[in-house]
Structures are given as structure tokens and as C-alpha cells.
Amino acid sequence: MAESQAPTAAAGKAEPNHAVRIASIWLVLAIVADLLIYFVWQPHLPPGRMSDNARGQQFDITVMAVLCAPVLLGVWTYFGYALVNWRRRAGDTEDGPPIEGNGKVQAAWITVTSLIVLSLAAFGTYELIVPAGAGGGEGPVPIWKPSGVVTTAAWTPGSTHTLVVQAIGQQWNWTYRFPQFGGMETTGLELPINTPVEFHVTSLDVIHSFWAYQLGVKADANPGVDNVAFVKPLQLGQFVVRCNELCGIWHGAMFDYGNVVTASQFQSWATSIQTKERANGTLAALPPYATTYDPTEISQLGQAWAKLGIVGAGGYYYPGPQTGTPGDPVSP
């Protein structure tokens, strides 16, 4: 730490070497804290170890805690020492030593903080790029993908093929579409273990954010935008899905639970829903799977209106780009 090299030039004759004292206290504290963080705290740090992303984030948070703890302790030790030792005694009206600066200390401080910061940025970049976006939303065309991804039209258990899951945010619920299962849609989310999953997050109205906490996945759901995030679940169990972007009155209640299950359990779950939705007509009623949906474009609607000769209670949606001039009668 830089402050441990603080000016010694002004030290008095009988005075102890403050810099050495502070540095020793700090060194002991920092080593103890770092050991505790790395070996004791790490397994308990969020977001847990349920997926590759979660493990990556946990490691990331640990590394940063290991780096930041000495900084915090350094500042605290220094100021604690200063506040204890360099108080003004009663009756002392003299000023302190006029130290206006110290080139070496300043240079050392700037060098050390720059090194810490640059190494953190390098580390963060590595941790972002190598595990394919670290679970964050990467926009419609992700440039950092997991290696060896194979996306096929149908997903089968036992293969290493990627499962595609579309998360659709709408005020105020998440639904999920599985294009590899006939485009069926559910309100519950089950994922197979040890399978790469490709989330496509989008929204039908306002901005939501898809946050599968234990999986370490967070991607904003923007209307008209496909936001892709990758994850590979590594443990069985339940995870929480919350909306993480203020989306209106029920934002706080927009949460749900998902499960990581075995590949065969997932297969039977998905197929049963596909069968049910085919039987009751839901699959036929759904729009074809797409990366984004415009809720104001409903191709079946024109026919329905023509058949009924009405305009819906909520009014029509936006007309196409208009060709007339203002003042013309409005035709839906």
C-alpha cells in the first residue's frame, strides 16, 4: 500500500517509525482477511454454484473481495492509527508540520492504484469474454459464445446440443417459448442439467429484466429487441426468476420459480406440455416463433375484425405508415 510509504523525512528524533508500524498492522490484517475471504467465505458468496455463470461470478466476486479488502483495511488502518496517535493534546495550540506534498508518495500512490485498477479491468474483461458474456445480456448478435455450440431444430437429451429458450416479459409475467418443442409456451421454466442453454430475452411492452438469480443470468427484456444470454446449469434444484427492471405497478410481484431437472425429466415435461397445447389448440393459436414480437401486429386480427365488423374495445392498434395528409378521415 502506498500510504505505508508515507513521508518519513519529517519524523522527529525520538518518534517511532509510524510507517513501519502502520504497514505491519495492515499486513497482518490484510493477510488474515484475504485468507478468510478466499477459503472460508468464497463457497458462501452469491450467487452460488448452480451454473457455470454463477460459479464464474462467485469467483469474480471473491477475487475482487481479495483485492479490495487490503485496500479498505489499508485506509482504515492508516486513518485509525492517525486518529489515535495524532490527536491534538489539550493546551496544544501549535500547528502541525507543514508537509505540502511528497513526490515519491504521490507517484507511488498513483502507480499502485493504477496497477490495481488496470489489473481489475483486465481480469474483468477476461472473465467476461471467456465464459461467453458471463450470463449478461449480449444483444441480438452475441459476439462471445460458448465454444462448441450446436443448435439443432430439435433438442434431444443426451446430446450436447444447445437448448433454446425464449423468455418473454410482459406486464407482469414471464412466459417461455421452446422453439425446439414446436414453439410451445409455458409460464413455468424447467431446464435440463449439464446442457448449454441459450436464452433469448424479449418483451412485449416495456423494459423488463430477466434475472435468474441462482443461474447468474441477467438480461434486459426490451420491446422489439432480442437479447441473448448463455448459461449451463450444473446443479439440480430450484432457482428464482425475478424482474429486475421497474416495469410498472406489479414489478415487485413479477417473480417466479424455475427448476433444473435431469435431461430426461425435462424431455418428458416439455413434450407433455407440447402435447397438451397441441391438443387444446394453443400451439395453433400462437404466432410463429420469432426472436421478437410486435404485439400491435396481429395478422389474424384483420380477418376477425372483418368477420365481426367491429373495432375492438381497446381500439385498433397503430395503422401502417400513413399515406394521406393530416385532416383526412382516420381509417383503422
Binding site: A82, R88, P97, T113, A121
Partner: peptide, 28 residues
Amino acid sequence: MLTTELISIPTGFIYLVAAGTFWKAKIT
């Protein structure tokens, strides 16, 4: 990420200044 972390360098100067000012001070 880099620019955000860089901003902690000038912010850190504020602590450098404080640390230097507290050195052998007469704190009231």
C-alpha cells in the same frame, strides 16, 4: 468497464490527499 474503473484513480487522489494531510497531524 475500463473507463469506469479508471475513474477510481482520480477518486483515489482524494484519499491520498486526506492520508497525507492526516500524517502527524494535530487532529481536533
